[in-house]
Design a protein around this nucleic acid. Structure first.
Length: 274
DNA sequence: TCCTATGTTGTATG
DNA sequence: ACATACAACATAGG
């Protein structure tokens, strides 16, 4: 489910835990979710630690804690929601439900912080130490940051000359946080067919795509990232899932097919293969 | 039963 | 070494 803006919103669901100490840790290690960290170490170090801040970048969330050891070692808890991950808080003392993999109780606040993911494509990552771990530090600069330049996109498209636009927009090393619906939204606004090859675009088309990427990400963060509301009906978002959907701009039928390995929706009257 | 699902990664092939 | 394509991961719901 979650892309850039949804991740940013869901990250804030643990805000009630900021400033509070973790008084007990419950892990339900199932295959996958804890693959890149040691659950035993995670449980040991989180116990007694204080949650100090959180952040989101791309589709990754970071929760920083100050450890319970004498020097208060910085703890870096990374959560990725995969396809079906969720964060929530709930009153203390309730039993753990199925698919809840990580539960942090905070007695002083009388609640628990919960990470659940029934499909288990999500990930828990962990690091203890003063410096940001690679899985956080190496995330590409945000598409709404000044580092996301037209030149960077142009260079990327040159190297990925044979890749369909749809597949390229899903590559996190250049378009961090962009997922299936955002990619379709960007291409629809830029009036580019998702199966066009990166190397075939002229400079004006790349510029348009760059501009729409920044616009869609900014608006999604302002709307969904702040309130979790869906974007308005003027967006492709509202029409792309239903059979027989109509393009809000051309009023002609939308089309769907698998492109770049993912279900893709576009407006044939507006996005031409050429 | 079969198909789909807002994601990533490992592997095979070119 | 690099780019590209696709199966695999695991589960629920239509």
């Amino acid at each position: 489910m979650p892309e850039l803006a949804e991740v940013e919103f869901i990250r804030k669901r643990w805000n009630p835990g900021l400033g509070h100490v973790v008084t007990s840790v419950r892990l339900h290690p199932r295959a996958g979710v804890f693959k890149t960290c040691d659950p035993a170490e995670l449980a040991r170090r989180l116990l007694g630690a204080r949650l100090t801040s959180s952040a989101a970048a791309a589709k990754q969330m970071l929760f920083r804690l100050s450890g319970a050891d004498a020097d208060g070692t910085t703890l870096w808890l990374g959560l990725h929601l995969g396809m079906t991950g969720e964060l929530s808080t709930r009153p203390a003392g309730l039993p753990d439900a199925r698919a809840e993999h990580l539960i942090l109780d905070q007695a002083a606040a009388a609640h628990s912080l919960v990470f659940a993911d029934f499909r288990m494509f999500g990930r828990v990552q962990f690091h203890a130490g003063p410096d940001a771990p690679a899985w956080w530090a190496d995330i590409a600069p945000a598409v709404i940051s000044p580092a996301f330049t037209l030149t960077a996109v142009t260079d990327f498209f040159r190297r990925r000359a044979r890749t369909p636009l749809k597949a390229a927009l899903l590559m996190q090393e250049r378009f961090p946080g962009i997922g299936n619906w955002m990619a379709d939204e960007i291409l629809w606004r830029a009036a580019l067919h998702p199966a066009r090859r990166c190397g075939d675009l002229d400079p004006a088309e790349i510029k348009k795509l760059h501009r729409e990427t920044v616009w869609v990400a900014s608006q999604a963060l302002a709307i969904t990232g702040a309130t979790f509301e869906d974007p308005p009906t003027s967006w492709l978002f509202q029409h792309r899932w239903k059979d027989g959907g109509i393009c809000p701009r051309t009023k002609k039928p939308l089309e769907r097919a698998t492109i770049g390995g993912r279900t893709t929706c576009w407006s044939p009257a507006r996005q031409k293969l050429a």
